[in-house]
Design a protein around this nucleic acid. Structure first.
Length: 116
DNA sequence: TGGGTGACCATAG
DNA sequence: ACTATGGCCACCC
């Protein structure tokens, strides 16, 4: 489905945070939702990703996983193995659709971006 | 205006 | 350990 091109607000916020994820690190939907405001559901973050691949600015959606470190969004990429391939290219090990050392590689915007 | 939807998450049984 | 379920809320039609 196609989203209107002028009414970005929440989606923009999501994309901004996702772009800040360093190479070789990953985060999850819940952390982003929490960073943007606890009142906002993490489902929206996932939904924003659904529209992320068409953005002008590159959005590294492959660095966003669910809370278990699983590649739940891989089916929404161009090809089924693209998400894993992109991650491995950054040095992340993926086994059975799950990121290894997820806890170590986890990038928490609440910590890294230091909200006051 | 309102209902359906979703790449989630936490809890209960 | 597993499945079911309800909450969540921006977005689209």
């Amino acid at each position: 489905m196609k989203l209107s091109e002028k009414t970005y607000s929440f989606f923009d916020d999501v994309y901004s945070v996702v772009r800040l994820i360093p190479k070789g690190r990953v985060t999850n939907y819940g952390a982003i939702a929490k960073y943007l405001g606890a009142a906002r559901s993490s489902r929206m973050v996932g939904w924003a990703m659904n529209a992320a691949h068409g953005q002008k600015e590159y959005v590294p959606a492959h660095r966003v996983l669910n809370r278990n470190g699983m590649l739940t969004g891989k089916n929404h990429f161009a090809s089924a193995n693209e998400m894993q391939m992109l991650l491995e290219k950054e040095g992340i090990v993926v086994v059975k659709d799950t990121v290894k050392n997820f806890k170590t590689l986890f990038w928490d915007p609440m910590e890294e971006l230091k909200i006051k």
